[in-house]
Amino acid sequence: MKRCLLLATAMVILATNAWVLVSAHRNQRQPVGGTLRLTERELALAEFPAESTVTILRLQWDVPSESSRWNRLAVWLNAAKLAELGFDCHVPVDDPDARRHYGSLTPRPAFIVLEFEGDAWRQAPPDRKSRTRLFAVDAGCDALPLRARYADTNRYAMVRGTVRLVFEDRNPDDAVSSRMPRLGGSIETLMPSAIFVPQPHRRALAEFRRPEPRPPEDRGQPPRYAVTVSWGAHYEPWVRDVVRLP
C-alpha cells in the first residue's frame, strides 16, 4: 500500500512538471500575443544578490491617466469598459449602497493590450514619457476581438492581467470632494510581469547586472540593451533575442 502511495506521489510530481512543460511548449509555438522589440526602459533588470546568476527582466509599463501621479488608474477604464469586463456596475454611484457594493467586488482577469511607442506614449506628460514607452491602452474578456482591433502584432502585445474596480469618492488631484463619486479602474498586475532570460541571451545582459542594475538617478539615460519579446498562444512571454545598443 505504502509503495503504491509513493508511486502515486511521484506520478503527480512528474505529471505536474510535464503539464507545465507542455503548456510552455504550446505557448511558444506561435506568437499570437505579439512580438515587441523593447529596451531597457521597458524591461528593467531585476535586482538579485551579488552571488546569483539568475537574470530576470521586469516589465515597466504605464497607462494613459488623468492624474500626473505614477499610478495605474487608466483613463479608458470607465464604467462602460468595466461592465464589459464583467464587473457588476448596476448600482448608481450616488446610491447609499454604492461604496459597500463596489468595495465588495474582486479583481477580474482580463486580456490587456500593451502599445509600444504609440499615441498613448506620445500624449503622455514629459516626466512619464521618459520612464517607458509601453502603455496599456485597452482590455477585454476575449482575446480574438481585441486582436482584430489591434492587428499590428509588432506594435501591440496582448498579455494576461487583472483589473481592479476603484470607487472614487473624491478627486485625488483636487483634494476636495468631487461633486459626484465615480467608477474607475486600475490594472493591478500583468501575468507574468517578470520574464526569465535563459541562456544564451543571458550572456548579453551579464555586463549590465554587475555590480547592480542601473540606479534610479541614471533613469532617463539612453537604454543600453534591446530585447525582443514574444507573447505566445497562452499570452505568456519569452525572450527571443537580446542585443547591446550602441
Binding site: 512538471n17 501575468m191 507574468p192 526569465f196 505568456e236
Partner: peptide, 18 residues
C-alpha cells in the same frame, strides 16, 4: 518551491491547479 521556480523559468502564469 520547484513548481514556482519552473513557472518562473518558463514564464508560465500562476494557475489554481498548482
Amino acid at each position: 518551491t520547484q513548481l514556482n521556480a519552473l513557472g518562473s523559468v518558463l514564464n508560465v502564469a500562476p494557475s489554481p491547479l498548482a
